[in-house]
Computed example of a mutant assay.
Amino acid sequence: MGGSFELYKDKAGQHRFRLKAGNGEIIAVGEAYNSKAAAEKGIASVKNNAADAPVKDLETGKQ
Rank of each mutant, 00 (worst) to 15 (best):
M1T: 08
M1R: 03
M1Q: 05
G2H: 03
G3V: 04
G3D: 13
S4G: 07
F5A: 06
E6F: 04
E6Y: 02
E6I: 11
E6T: 10
E6H: 05
E6V: 15
L7I: 12
Y8D: 05
Y8H: 05
K9T: 10
K9G: 00
K9H: 04
D10W: 01
D10N: 15
D10S: 04
D10R: 08
K11A: 09
K11W: 07
A12E: 15
A12Q: 11
G13T: 03
G13D: 10
Q14S: 13
Q14A: 14
Q14K: 14
Q14L: 13
Q14V: 01
R16H: 04
R16K: 13
R16N: 12
F17N: 00
R18M: 15
R18Y: 03
R18A: 11
R18H: 03
K20L: 15
A21M: 08
A21D: 14
A21R: 12
A21G: 01
G22V: 01
G22E: 14
N23M: 08
N23R: 12
G24D: 13
G24L: 13
G24E: 15
G24M: 12
E25N: 09
E25A: 11
E25F: 00
E25K: 15
I26G: 00
I26Y: 01
I27T: 11
I27R: 07
A28N: 06
A28D: 06
A28Q: 10
V29D: 03
V29P: 05
G30H: 06
E31R: 06
A32T: 11
A32P: 08
A32K: 13
A32Q: 13
A32W: 00
A32G: 04
Y33T: 07
Y33G: 06
Y33E: 10
Y33A: 09
N34F: 01
N34R: 10
S35H: 09
S35T: 15
S35F: 00
K36F: 02
K36P: 04
A37N: 08
A37V: 07
A37G: 05
A37H: 03
A37Q: 10
A39H: 00
A39I: 01
E40L: 13
E40R: 12
E40A: 08
K41T: 03
G42W: 05
G42L: 14
I43D: 05
I43V: 14
A44D: 12
A44C: 01
A44P: 00
V46H: 00
N48K: 15
N48L: 15
N48P: 00
N48T: 06
N48F: 01
N49F: 01
N49D: 12
N49R: 14
N49H: 05
A51K: 14
A51H: 06
A51Q: 13
A51Y: 02
D52L: 12
A53Y: 01
P54D: 13
P54T: 11
P54C: 11
V55F: 12
K56A: 13
K56G: 05
K56H: 09
D57Q: 10
L58I: 12
L58G: 02
E59Y: 08
T60A: 10
T60N: 09
T60F: 01
T60V: 05
G61I: 13
G61V: 12
G61Q: 09
K62R: 14
K62H: 08
K62Y: 06
Q63P: 06
